[in-house]
């Protein structure tokens, strides 16, 4: 599109406003995390500390925080692996099978993704209590896999539909059994879709709060979001540490996102735009 010089200037100004709106809170978070605990909060606040230091990070990386981090890695890691595996198998069936029953079931999957978590959490909590699974990784992983499966299936199905079936047919004619066709042809081709789905599930489970808050009761089992929320009460006024912890919680997902952005963007938009 061609623009006149004045329009270009106006649009560039709007871009700066947009960037400021998005980035100012991030800048503030980092600035405060680098402020030495000894430097008093100036009123009105200073935008950048006079003597930036990493001491808040060192203090914030206390043993509890490391436990929360480990728990988050275990719960999110397991959820990503299980959800993506199950979703790929299911999406393959949904994209290749031609039965009416499958269309109906796919509809049921799409509807299930709209169920409000706060409305279904009490029966799930009771089931977990009955199975003696409260305050375990297992309860969180089961909940996370179940709630992320519908969107994961929907994303992967959108991806698999676009793959040419001819390759699978050719392999089949060459004598490959259905399991080999899936493993040798479909799985390698589905890689971009798998990456997109994995990133999506990671982003969702890394920040999941409601289930983690309701199902865990001891410090040993808390995940990062719940642990951070606990910090507010304990270290309410020590914003420097709170912001340093926040940065450490966010960096892993933001880094992975920037690394694998194009996969995620393609995966998320494919369904909504083409569907």
């Amino acid at each position: 599109m061609k623009h006149t010089a004045t329009t270009r200037f106006g649009l560039a100004a709007l871009q700066i406003v947009l960037a400021l709106f998005v980035l100012l809170p991030f800048f503030w978070m980092i600035s405060v995390s680098l402020k030495p605990a000894t430097e008093p909060f100036a009123i009105p606040a200073r935008l950048w500390p006079t003597a930036p230091t990493l001491e808040n990070y060192v203090t914030a990386f206390r043993p509890e925080f490391r436990t929360y981090f480990m728990n988050s890695i275990i719960v999110s890691g397991a959820s990503v692996a299980i959800t993506v595996t199950l979703a790929l198998l299911a999406a393959y069936s949904f994209s290749r099978g031609k039965l009416i029953a499958l269309t109906v079931l796919m509809g049921a999957v799409v509807i299930a993704q709209m169920f409000p978590h706060s409305a279904i959490i009490i029966p799930i909590y009771k089931m977990m209590r009955l199975a003696d699974l409260l305050n375990t990784y297992t309860s969180l992983i089961i909940a996370y896999v179940s709630v992320t499966l519908p969107v994961a299936i929907w994303m992967l199905r959108g991806f698999l539909i676009k793959l040419p079936v001819s390759l699978e047919e050719a392999a089949s004619i060459d004598g490959a059994g259905p399991v080999r066709v899936f493993w040798d042809i479909v799985v390698p081709l589905a890689r971009p879709g798998v990456i997109a789905t994995a990133v999506y599930v990671l982003i969702v489970t890394w920040q999941e709060f409601l289930f983690a808050l309701s199902f865990t009761s001891t410090k040993e089992m808390r995940t990062l979001p719940v642990g951070l929320n606990d910090f507010i009460g304990q270290y309410g006024i020590r914003y420097g540490e709170l912001m340093a912890s926040s940065v450490m919680v966010s960096v892993p997902v933001i880094a992975i996102f920037f690394f694998l952005q194009r996969y995620l963007v393609a995966g998320l938009t494919a369904g909504a735009v083409k569907g």
Binding site: F115, M127, V147, L149
Partner: peptide, 22 residues
């Protein structure tokens, strides 16, 4: 096809649909 779908359908039925009715 049904083998691939079985674990997913089981999870969605038990942990999404049953709680909705529950």
């Amino acid at each position: 096809l049904w083998l691939f779908l079985a674990p997913t359908l089981l999870l969605i039925a038990v942990f999404l649909y049953y709680p909705m009715i529950g």
